[in-house]
Design a protein around this nucleic acid. Structure first.
Lengths: 107, 107
DNA sequence: CTTGTTCATACGCATAAATGCATTTTGAGG
DNA sequence: CCTCAAAATGCATTTATGCGTATGAACAAG
């Protein structure tokens, strides 16, 4: 019926994006490659936590990393991730609009 | 820096898609509206489980539901979900290809 | 070789998510 | 009213996720 294996991989891929801290990192990487040392101060979470999220996304194929001395630079692996993010943004905003209308009608 | 609230909503939206059983349901709904009674026998999971996943996706704005007698019909709310799924499919397959090449090179 | 910096990881904990089984609710039809 | 079928819910259990603290590994510079 379904390719269970592919479904699992797709699920893992989406899960790697579907988390608020990771989403923030992705948005931050919109302007291009960034060192972990630049990403970390930008977030309110702990260094270890950000590091884990970065590793997670790299393992999932969302990010690529490059080492330079003690620093590690991360960037988005596939530009289509941005298309995906825009798409989600559009859909979520459309949904918010829709719900706002319903609230207007009810009272 | 970021719209924390929007990020959270987008994260929830993506999480509602990023789960293997729910992904299977979405793929099953590609051909259009389906009754829960049609979806359930198609999956190996329990009826209660599928019911909860359907409710989850409806609440997240991914699905719409329509009641007809004792049956409940579900369909995808926003066609762009399919665009998103295709995009994920492409990216995942590209990543698989990439990794296959690396494996070829190493030995 | 020592020190300081950057990033990754092990450990432990807390919370969230997914699941199956049993039960309830809801509606159709005798 | 009774019964049957479909879907939702309560409950208990297991599994997965996310997190902070502390520690470790890699590298540069003195």
């Amino acid at each position: 019926m379904f390719d269970e294996n592919l479904i699992q991989i797709e699920s893992d891929f989406l899960k790697a994006i579907a988390q608020s801290t990771r989403l923030k990192i992705l948005y931050y990487l919109k302007d291009g490659e960034r060192c972990a040392c630049e990403i970390i101060p930008n977030m309110k979470e702990d260094q270890s936590n950000i590091s884990r999220h970065l590793t997670h996304m790299r393992d999932a194929g969302i990010l690529e990393s490059r080492k330079e001395g003690v620093s590690v630079y991360y960037k988005i692996n596939d530009k289509r991730v941005f298309t995906l993010l825009s798409l989600v943004d559009e859909m979520v905003k459309a949904e918010i609009k829709k719900k706002a209308k319903v609230v207007k009608v009810i009272p």
